[in-house]
Amino acid sequence: MTLTLTVPPGAKVRVRITNENGETTEIEVEPGETVTITLPAGSTVRVEVEVVDPDGRKRTETFTLKP
C-alpha cells in the first residue's frame, strides 16, 4: 500500500506514521515536494498529517489505514 502526498507551495507538512507495535516514523515534506510512502503490507497504520500554511495556521488530519 502506498500513500502519496503533494505539498502545495508555501505549506509545510509533517507526517507521523504509527504501526500496530506503536513504532512511529516521522517525516517532514518541504513546500512543492511530492513524496510517496510505502506502508507495510497487511498492517494497520495510523497516519497523522500536520499542515502549516504560509500564514502560520496549523491543521491536523488523522486517519487509519487497514489492509
Score class of each variant (00 low, 15 high):
G56Q: 00
L65S: 01
R57I: 06
L5Y: 07
R59F: 11
G42L: 08
L3M: 04
T44F: 13
F63K: 00
E20Q: 05
D53Y: 15
A41E: 06
E23P: 09
K58N: 01
V15R: 00
E26M: 04
E20A: 05
G32I: 15
R14H: 10
M1N: 04
R59N: 01
T60P: 00
N21Q: 11
T62F: 07
V52M: 04
V49K: 01
F63P: 00
E48K: 02
M1Q: 03
E23H: 06
T64E: 15
R59W: 15
T18F: 12
P40D: 10
T34Q: 10
T24Q: 08
T6L: 14
E23T: 08
E61I: 15
V51F: 11
V15K: 01
L39F: 14
P31F: 10
A41R: 10
E30W: 03
T18D: 07
L3F: 06
T38Y: 07
A11E: 02
R59C: 15
I17G: 13
P54H: 07
G10H: 04
T24D: 06
L5K: 01
G10N: 10
D55N: 02
F63G: 01
R16D: 06
R57V: 10
I27L: 08
G10M: 10
V47M: 01
A11G: 08
V45E: 02
R14W: 08
L65T: 01
S43E: 15
P40H: 12
L3K: 02
A11M: 01
E48W: 03
T34V: 14
V47Q: 00
E26T: 04
E28L: 02
R14A: 13
L5T: 10
V15L: 07
T24V: 05
K12C: 08
G42P: 10
L5V: 07
P54F: 10
E48T: 08
E33G: 13
S43C: 12
D53H: 04
T24K: 08
N21H: 09
L39R: 07
T38I: 06
V45H: 07
G42R: 14
I27R: 11
T25W: 11
G56C: 01
S43F: 10
D55A: 02
G56S: 00
I27G: 11
T6K: 06
R59I: 09
T60Q: 02
G32Q: 14
K58C: 07
T24M: 07
S43Q: 15
E33M: 07
R59H: 11
K66D: 14
T36A: 09
G42Q: 14
S43L: 14
V15C: 09
G10E: 12
P67A: 13
T44G: 04
E48F: 02
T25G: 07
T44I: 11
R57F: 04
V13G: 05
V29A: 04
M1W: 14
L5W: 12
P54Y: 04
P9C: 07
T18Q: 09
G32A: 14
A11R: 01
T44A: 09
R14K: 08
S43Y: 07
D55V: 00
R59K: 03
R46F: 10
L3W: 10
G10F: 03
T2A: 08
R59P: 00
T18M: 06
P9F: 06
G22W: 11
F63H: 03
T6I: 09
V13D: 03
V7H: 11
I17Y: 15
L3I: 05
L5E: 02
T18N: 09
R57L: 03
E30F: 07
L5H: 04
V47P: 00
K66H: 14
A11K: 01
G22M: 10
T36I: 15
L3H: 08
E61H: 15
G32K: 14
P54L: 06
K66V: 15
D53P: 00
T6M: 11
I37A: 12
G56R: 00
E20S: 05
T38N: 08
E61M: 14
P67H: 11
V7L: 11
T25S: 06
N21C: 13
D53W: 14
V7R: 06
E28W: 02
P31S: 05
V29F: 13
T64V: 13
T38F: 12
R57K: 07
A41I: 13
T6G: 14
D53N: 02
P67K: 01
F63T: 02
E28Q: 10
T4M: 07
G42W: 14
L3A: 09
M1S: 04
E26V: 04
T25C: 13
G56W: 00
V47S: 00
R57T: 14
E30I: 14
G10I: 04
E26Q: 05
E48P: 00
G42T: 13
K66E: 13
T62Q: 03
T44V: 09
P54M: 05
P40G: 06
G22T: 09
D53S: 03
S43W: 04
